[in-house]
Design a protein around this nucleic acid. Structure first.
Length: 294
DNA sequence: GGAATCATGTGAT
DNA sequence: ATCACATGATTCC
């Protein structure tokens, strides 16, 4: 591990984000959050990874435009509580409230989504045709799945876990046919992870495949602005089922389009990061990365 | 601060 | 029917 990181550091010269930056970031997160020992300082962390403080600094600014110190700030419990804030969800237009489809996302990655119920995609049976590809991302290797109607799936894999992640995703829509086509998925990946390409004029098309309840929950997530968070019970209340916070958690856990549908912005009432399908470390990384985007 | 325990809605089997 | 949950509140330490 240390040898690998040393190697990465030796080759780290360019200013554009690096696929392997995430390996370092996640190692840092692991050290500070799972650090059963005393909270290590920045120097200690760098030394543990076999990096100089300057090299570490470089990785962070390349990754999210953040100093290591600011990043550390951004992943504390204290910061998470601030994300929860006071103000409630912005009121959206009536068209949005009524239908299952509509334009979404006020402050960041703009998305138009349409919902596909289990009935619909079961009816079309094997007709659902999914193309997929693996691409580097700020959060490790991303698995992108698309249909003719838009982005249907987005998942993340640690090194060597690509197959497991693919199986996880493919099992959700067992009737569909899958074809690898990274040429087709590459533009999606490029766009999703580059904030400069997020625009209201050309929204990203997403197709939400799930039950009515799940789709409601996911739509609710789409309304959470960047650098904000909601609790599971906030969301339960918002969809009119105040007691269903736990069911909300389960639905969020089944979100097939992670990151784009910002399931990482759902926290426990205490501000604690209670869970994440692709690993809590990744959830922390996403919140830290977002903190670095203006 | 935990840990144990309960009420709880949804979805898969 | 039953079971597994990315919850949350309560009640003990």
């Amino acid at each position: 591990m240390t040898a690998v990181l040393n190697d990465i550091a030796a080759n780290a010269v360019d200013a554009t984000p690096h696929g392997s930056d995430y390996e370092i970031i996640s190692a840092v997160i692991a050290m500070i959050s799972e650090g059963y020992r005393a909270q290590p300082g920045l120097e200690t962390i760098a030394a543990q990874l076999g990096l100089s403080p300057t090299a570490l600094q470089k990785v962070f600014s390349r990754w999210a435009g953040l100093s290591p110190k600011a990043f550390l700030q951004a992943v504390t419990l204290d910061h998470a509580k601030r994300l929860l804030g006071q103000e409630h969800l912005p009121l959206l237009e009536a068209s949005y409230e009524l239908g299952l489809s509509g334009p979404g996302r006020l402050h960041d990655l703009f998305v138009t989504h349409e919902a596909m119920s289990p009935g619909e995609w079961k009816a079309s049976g094997a007709g659902l045709h999914i193309r997929y590809g693996f691409h580097p991302s700020p959060f490790g290797t991303a698995l992108v799945m698309i249909t003719g109607r838009g982005l249907a799936g987005l998942a993340f894999a640690d090194a060597g876990q690509e197959r497991t992640v693919y199986d996880d995703m493919a099992s959700r829509w067992s009737q569909a046919s899958y074809i690898e086509d990274s040429a087709a998925t590459a533009p999606y990946a490029a766009r999703i992870f580059n904030p400069e390409q997020w625009s209201a004029e050309q929204p990203l098309k997403v197709v939400l495949i799930g039950t009515d309840f799940q789709v409601q929950v996911w739509e609710s997530l789409l309304k959470i602005p960047m650098n904000k968070a909601r609790t599971y019970s906030d969301i339960a209340a918002e969809i009119g089922r105040p007691k269903a916070s736990r069911a909300v958690g389960a639905a969020i856990g089944r979100n097939p389009v992670s990151f784009v549908v910002p399931c990482h912005r759902a926290l426990g009432k205490s501000g604690a990061l209670t869970g994440y399908h692709w690993g809590l470390t990744r959830k922390r990384a996403m919140l830290g990365w977002e903190a670095g985007q203006s």
